[in-house]
């Protein structure tokens, strides 16, 4: 993947898979947990993201299981996916740090009274 910024669903799916290999439904649940219920990925969105990440080499299939006659495929992060997630995480952290600093400066200018 060559784009400079990553869209939120992509970032969240990679974050979910950073912990351990997971199947589709577990990723949806994990993303809900990570975002405190703010983001619920739907199947169409999830599998569009998974397909793109596989094509870009950021994730790969870990293993397949059949549970209750249904296919369950586990995905894991690749080394490239690990690097891309680390880069994105650093970028977001850097921006958040700047935002925090500016908010502190602003509030001190306004005498600790948030506008």
């Amino acid at each position: 993947m060559t784009d400079a910024t990553m869209r939120e669903p992509t970032f969240l799916v990679l974050t979910a898979l950073a912990a351990e290999p997971q199947h589709g439904y577990a990723v949806i649940e994990d993303v809900r947990r990570i975002t405190d219920g703010r983001v619920t990925l739907r199947a169409g969105t999830l599998y569009a993201v998974l397909d793109r990440l596989r094509n870009d080499g950021l994730i790969e299939v870990d293993r397949e299981e059949v549970v209750n006659s249904r296919l369950r495929r586990y995905y894991r992060l690749t080394a490239l996916g690990d690097r891309r997630l680390a880069d994105e995480s650093a970028r977001l952290r850097h921006q958040a740090t700047i935002a925090d600093r500016r908010l502190r400066e602003r509030r001190s200018r306004l005498g600790d009274a948030p506008a």
Binding site: G24, Y25, A43, G44, L46, Y47, R70, L71, R72
Partner: peptide
Amino acid sequence: EYEEEMVAVLL
């Protein structure tokens, strides 16, 4: 590639 998985997740 994904239909069986997607249907399983949807259900």
